[in-house]
Design a protein around this nucleic acid. Structure first.
Lengths: 340, 340
DNA sequence: TAACCTTACGAAAACGTTTGCGTGTGGATA
DNA sequence: TATCCACACGCAAACGTTTTCGTAAGGTTA
């Protein structure tokens, strides 16, 4: 088991100084051609690779981006990561991914861990618990220490930093409008509780769309789900004997669960009830019927977020701080769950 | 913007030496109670956090685990990561995740990057391209430098290291047996090309199960798919006018695509054709009908892999090398896509 | 031959820690 | 008063780099 070879070892072996080796490897003119070649040959032979840790310490930057997301087993977030990785790799950055598991404490721990030397900046979507507690001191602190943060999707309005979001309200409005334009009149919404920012925004979009069509929203057409894992029973009783002709679900799971419930209740999608979901994931694409949905373009979000972050990271320190909020356009993907 | 505070700054501010500060923060008896309290108060005030990079350099270990997977947008792999994170966090390890995107080159780059100081050991599932090329020098090199590697799922038999796998053959056999026990006689398999190790193993399991039932396998009941993204057309023509009464698909995507194709061809699942898939992902659970499938217990795999790795990492250096292969039991999850 | 200039290399500091050991100060002991 | 011993702290090395600056050797010039 040969250990990793260091400059020091090469120097000793070749009977020159460490600095000579370092310079030779960098093709410095300070070093004679002869020595340079000798050193490089030796380094190659022993497969020398500079130690990243030492470089990070010296340069005071790590060339890594920290990504913290609420859930790792989640299609949308992984597509975002895909986008981040794409540009990070192009620009020579490494990506560290941590999941907060929607726990405030774990988010804090992860952020502090990465902030103490492991990453130069962060791309993050906050945990559910954090949105509930409204405690953002860890993020503020990270920023105040000079580490740029880009928030995406589940953002925090109060925080002054770069953000990448979709227009959730507009997306929901588009979805609802689509249903309205198909002639649906009794449109229910299955959404989350209000403290989830994106849920609330989508609910508002739904309401706006109805208003624009002069339809009064009905309280009993709105279902706010707290416990996502047990949504099926809630949706089932919600839909029981209800004469809706369309459902707008703010995420994929709610959409397919609604479809399943309708199926069990003997109703056909889209003939009896049309469904529009949110997020273009695996489920929407492969479900039968495939689901009409609003695509959030996760990869694009990741790309934009990474670009914003790297710009900040590589920008001059003396330019005045300026923060952008990028809004990614959503798009309606029409499939089989809404009738033509 | 207050920069990160270091021992040096605290020392200067308090007019003591760096070592005094360091020791005081560690509650060393060498330092007077008075000084200790003063230092700790100051450190707390300025929110001092030791710099991980410096610690890594000094201790020559990073307390991070590198995970390299073929695809990040993939339910099974993310569940494995979930498991890894679970035990890593318990044991105070950080997790760095990189995806190779199934590219050999990117796998090499990522591994070398992480190996040069960013991680102490690796958990990895090799890229498709790597399996094809059979070039494992990067992994061998990493191990020869003293960094432990745990392979999972898509492993490499030739490599001597810890491994965590499922018994793909046995799982496939179980799946096929289930179909046979339901009375199915004409069982097709939709699988991958042979160089994907798990695909081949599952195909073999299917063949074994048939043999045990004295059923001769038919070439025209075996579909090997090369281009996963366009599997629908292949499956469609494969199933066209074929009188099968059951399908065993080696992954979720093939299973639901088969279901979709059958649906379009006017056949009912499970009444006309039963389907068993492999991997218990989102799709299987929520599809209508929900899919009977073989669960790989991804999280459990991640847990075991992480434990193996951390054992190696924290074990004595002088114990003789000994490598384990953990085989996770698969289980059959019966749902609606196979008739009772 | 003295002064100077290249050439080719080495010494050392710096990044932020930890830790073994050396040492000055003061009080207690003889 | 001389000796000794805790006590409380500082020094310096080490981890692996990069880079600035210093310098010895040898050659060139006047």
């Amino acid at each position: 088991m040969k250990q990793k070879v260091t400059l020091k070892q090469i120097a000793k072996e070749l009977d020159v100084s460490i600095s000579t080796v370092s310079k030779a490897l960098k093709d410095s003119v300070e070093i004679s051609l002869d020595t340079r070649q000798k050193v490089k040959a030796f380094a190659k032979l022993y497969n020398y690779k500079p130690n990243n840790i030492a470089l990070s310490l010296k340069n005071r930057k790590t060339k890594t981006i920290g990504v913290i997301i609420p859930e790792i087993v989640h299609h949308f977030f992984t597509t975002v990561i895909g986008g981040v990785e794409k540009v990070a790799n192009e620009k020579g950055y490494n990506v560290i991914i941590c999941s907060s598991n929607n726990s405030f404490d774990k988010e804090v721990i992860n952020l502090e861990m990465l902030a103490s030397g492991s990453a130069d900046g962060f791309i993050l979507s906050v945990a559910k618990e954090t949105q509930q507690k409204k405690d953002y001191h860890h993020i503020e602190e990270t920023m105040s220490q000079g580490m740029p943060v880009v928030l995406f999707d589940r953002i925090i309005d109060e925080l002054v930093c770069d953000k990448v979001i979709i227009d959730d309200g507009k997306g929901a409005q588009t979805a609802t409008n689509h249903l309205l334009s198909l002639g649906c009149k009794k449109i229910a919404i299955i959404t989350t509780v209000d403290y989830i920012s994106v849920g609330k925004l989508r609910t508002n979009g739904y309401l706006r769309a109805l208003r624009a069509y002069d339809i009064t929203a009905r309280e009993d057409y709105i279902l706010k789900i707290e416990d996502i894992d047990n949504c099926e029973s809630e949706i089932s009783s919600f839909l029981k004997d209800k004469e809706v002709d369309a459902i707008f679900a703010v995420n994929e799971l709610f959409a397919v669960t609604a479809a399943r419930v309708l199926h069990e209740q003997g109703k056909k999608v889209p003939d009896d009830v049309s469904i529009v979901g949110f997020t273009d994931g695996i489920l929407s694409k492969h479900f039968i019927p495939s689901l009409t949905t609003i695509s959030q373009h996760g990869e694009e979000m990741g790309i934009r977020a990474a670009k914003l972050l790297i710009d900040k990271l590589e920008g001059e320190d003396d330019v005045p701080e300026e923060y952008k909020t990028v809004i990614i356009d959503t798009s309606l993907i029409q499939r089989q769950s809404t009738k033509k």
